[in-house]
Design a protein around this nucleic acid. Structure first.
Length: 159
DNA sequence: GCCAACGTTGGC
DNA sequence: GCCAACGTTGGC
């Protein structure tokens, strides 16, 4: 099983928004970066672990544990002219952008960026690297364990 | 709002 | 294929 960190802007889809969705599951729409797309298209498997991360907000950090809940399929927003994610160059018979569904398993406290950076065991976590802008990054098993352990003692917002 | 870092575009 | 210009991301 692989593990991932996936960024979402809480103004777009917060962990609470995801929890409120049917089955606590949301389609990960709007990824328009090839490297991130390739992770979803080629490397993710159902039941892979996901760290739900809030970005571009007052307190960026990990706010939930989730799982990959579907195989890859075309991102419908690429075909919607009214969507900010519309891609006029993408054809229905050869969709450019694929996504997976993500199911939140539990909300956690906000494990903030400064706290993540303070951890000796997380020095090489990809999302902490300077200049990192990728919205989806792989998480090494040891990093995953470290983070889950950090979150383990802490009550989340909801089971 | 600033700005570093990175990705994409397009002329050549 | 190179690379300058431009656009975007995202923390601060």
């Amino acid at each position: 099983m692989n593990h991932w960190l996936m960024k979402s802007e809480p103004g777009e889809c917060s962990v609470d928004d995801a929890l409120a969705a049917p089955g606590a599951t949301v389609p990960w729409v709007g990824v328009r970066n090839y490297q991130a797309r390739n992770f979803m298209r080629d490397a993710m498997r159902v039941d892979d672990g996901v760290l739900f991360y809030h970005s571009s907000c007052a307190e960026p950090g990990i706010v939930g544990i989730a799982r990959v809940a579907s195989s890859p399929y075309p991102d419908p927003t690429q075909f919607d002219p009214k969507s900010p994610y519309f891609d006029a160059a993408s054809r229905a018979e050869a969709p450019r952008w694929l996504l997976v569904d993500v199911q939140v398993l539990r909300k956690t406290r906000n494990l903030t960026l400064p706290e993540l950076r303070s951890q000796t065991g997380l020095q090489d976590l990809q999302v902490l690297r300077k200049g990192n802008r990728l919205s989806i990054t792989p998480v090494e098993p040891l990093h995953w364990q470290w983070i889950v352990h950090l979150l383990g003692d802490d009550p989340g917002g909801r089971p």
